[in-house]
Design a protein around this nucleic acid. Sequence first.
DNA 1: GCCAACGTTGGC
DNA 2: GCCAACGTTGGC
Length: 158
Amino acid sequence: MPYWLLKTEPDSWSWQDQIVQRNPKGERGSVPWDGVRNFTARKFLLEMRYGDLCFFYHTGKERRIVGLVEITREAYPEVPPQKEIASFPWICVDVRAVASALTPLSLSEIKLYPELKEMVLLRNSRLSVQPVRAEEWNRICLLMGLDPMDKNLPLVSL
DNA sequence: GCCAACGTTGGC
DNA sequence: GCCAACGTTGGC
């Protein structure tokens, strides 16, 4: 199963915003991950599949991974349709919070681990939607205090 | 606040 | 099709 990393500026959309989302039954709710205006990022959005897991990363002053989300709806055009590029729909996916990091993992910490130095996060600091290798995923989950082998979601309560 | 890296635009 | 100019992102 592919893994991903999603960046967000917490002043615009934060982990707190994400985890308070609830559906009418009071269950954790999904929200569109929209506003992506980069073709490389768009390509990755198109590759995401239902159930894929993503790190939730705060840019700006925080610069750390704070939680996990899962894909609950595969790529679809943004609503209302965006027309910034003629006949080219910008797309989004839906995501739902899965688990909060017990210990958020900072960018500076990530840089300390040789096995993480190939991460897209370090190699292309501007890409807001990016793939994560399975080894990287497992390593980072453990560093955040989460068990990547726990098949029962949520990995920890929010 | 600065600026490097990246992406886009438009003139040629 | 190249590339200079410009705008934006996001780390520092």
